[in-house]
Amino acid sequence: MTGHAHAQDPNVAHHFENADQQYQSAKLGMWVFLATEILFFGGLFCAYAVYRANHPEIFVFGHHFLDKSLGALNTVILICSSFTIAWAVRAAQLKQIRLLKVLLALTLACAAGFLSVKYVEYSHKWKHGLLWASRYSPEAHHGEQRDHAEETGAESAASGETTESSPEAVQEGLERSKIAPAASGPAGLAVADERPGEEIVAEPKNAQVYFSIYFLLTGLHGIHVLGGMGAMAWLLSLARRGAFDTGHFTKVDMVALYWHLVDLIWIYLFLLLYLID
C-alpha cells in the first residue's frame, strides 16, 4: 500500500488516514448504533403505551407487585456504574492504566450487582406465579374465571344488542377489542385477591399481560446488561495486555457510550413499570 506515516501505528487500521479519522468513524458508528437501539426499545415502549391506553387498570393493578425499593436500588447501582465508566474513559485518556482497571472492575461489579437484584425480583415473582401469560397462575380459579368471560363475550358478540355499541367502535379506529374484555368490563370480573403480604387489590381481567410486558422489557434490558458486562471483561483483558498504554482510548469510550444508554433505558423502565400508576 501507499507508504503513509501512520503505517507503523498499530492502533490505526490500514484503511484509515490517521488515528483521528478512525476515532471519528468509530464514534459516529457507535452513535448510529445507539439510535437503532433506542428505536428497538422504542417499539416495545410503543406496544406498552398502546396496551396501557386501552387497559390502564391492568397496569395500575400490576405495578403493585413490583418492589419499588429494589427497583430504586438498581437505579442507584446503574447510575453509579455510569459514573465509574465515565471516569474510566478519563483514566484511559490520561494513560492511568491501574486506575482504569480498577474502575472497569467496579463497573463490572455494579452490573453484576444489578443482575443479582433482578434475580431476587424474578425469583419472588416465580414463587407467586406472577409470570408471563401462559405461565401466569397466582390463583387456581382464575382459569375458569377467564373461560367464563370468553363465553359471555361470544354470546354478546352475536346477539343483536351489541350492534348499538358498534358505531363508535368503527370511528375509534385503533380502539380496544370489543368481544372479550368489553363484553364484561374489568370491574365485572374483579375477584377479591387474598395474596398474603399484599394489600387487597381487585384483579382485572388479563392482568397477566402486565407481567408479560414486564418480563419482555426487563428481560431484553437484562440481555443488554449481559452484553455490556462481556464488553467490559474484554476491555479489562485488553488493559492487562497493555492495549491502552499508548493512550488509545477509543474502545473504552465506545463501551462507555453503550453503557450509558443501557443505564438510560433502565431509568425509563423503572419509571414506566414501577412508579407511575
Binding site: T162, T163, S165, S166, P167, A169, V170, E175, S177, K178, I179, A180
Partner: peptide, 11 residues
C-alpha cells in the same frame, strides 16, 4: 371492501 377483525366491529 372492509376487514372483519376479531374483537371489533367494522361496518
Amino acid at each position: 371492501k372492509s376487514d372483519l377483525v376479531p374483537g371489533r366491529y367494522s361496518k
